[in-house]
């Protein structure tokens, strides 16, 4: 959960990119890291990747990004990815600890649809082990790899992955070309800040 430090006027929030193996979670972070406009160099931290020798995420990728989203408060966004491979499910749970917002990165190719669904189920299960409920956490869907052949139509992706009482925002993306990457990030940050706004109003 977000950390509010009234003394230093800082808000820290954690956003996790979750999805099946090779769906483009790390690429999303790399593109944000490489292309984001920052007012000063210190606003963007170093990207850390704990990967295998074959460049597959072993534990997580991480980088911190600062912005002044709220007047008078420095907001620090900690962006994480989880490993996509099922064998690393335990580490996914660890990375999800204290999550504030989630980007589910789905692979749009037809033959990846079963893996997308399976991974989404794992996400819900992993959150439950942490006593969290997906319905309480802002999340968005990103349908990645739209530049490839044999991709499913958006309506189909929505039907398969986003077919709930309340549909969450979804974005088409081609993360390797940086298409849809910033739109996705901006939506999840906006949803997070709205949640803080609403939660604050209730108290």
């Amino acid at each position: 959960m977000a950390i509010i430090n009234q003394a230093t006027k800082e808000l820290q929030v954690k956003i996790v990119y979750y999805g099946p193996a090779k769906s483009g979670k790390t690429t999303n972070l790399e593109q944000v890291h490489a292309n984001v406009q920052v007012p000063e160099a210190t606003a963007k931290g170093k990207m850390t990747s704990l990967a295998t020798s074959s460049d597959r995420t072993l534990f997580f990728d991480f980088f911190p990004l600062e912005a002044v989203a709220i007047k008078g408060f420095k907001t620090k966004f900690a962006l994480f990815t989880v490993p996509g491979q099922v064998i690393y499910n335990a580490t996914r749970q660890i990375v999800l600890r204290g999550v504030d917002g989630i980007v589910f990165v789905a692979d749009s190719q037809y033959d990846k649809m079963e893996e997308n669904v399976e991974t989404f189920k794992h996400l819900e299960e992993n959150l439950k082990t942490l006593n969290l409920n997906l319905e309480d956490i802002p999340y968005v869907m990103q349908y990645n790899k739209r530049d490839l052949a044999d991709v499913a139509p958006i309506e189909y992706m929505d039907f398969v992955l986003n077919n709930r009482e309340v549909q969450v925002p979804s974005f088409e993306a081609s993360a390797s070309n940086c298409d849809g990457v910033f739109e996705t990030l901006n939506m999840i940050t906006r949803m997070l800040l709205h949640k803080f706004l609403n939660d604050g109003a209730r108290k």
Partner: peptide, 22 residues
């Protein structure tokens, strides 16, 4: 324990695009 963040100054339209591409 339940004190939230005072976001009365926050205009939600300001956060439409918090992060911009170079």
């Amino acid at each position: 324990p339940g004190k939230g963040l005072d976001l009365s100054d926050l205009n939600p339209t300001d956060v439409q695009a918090l992060f911009k591409k170079q």
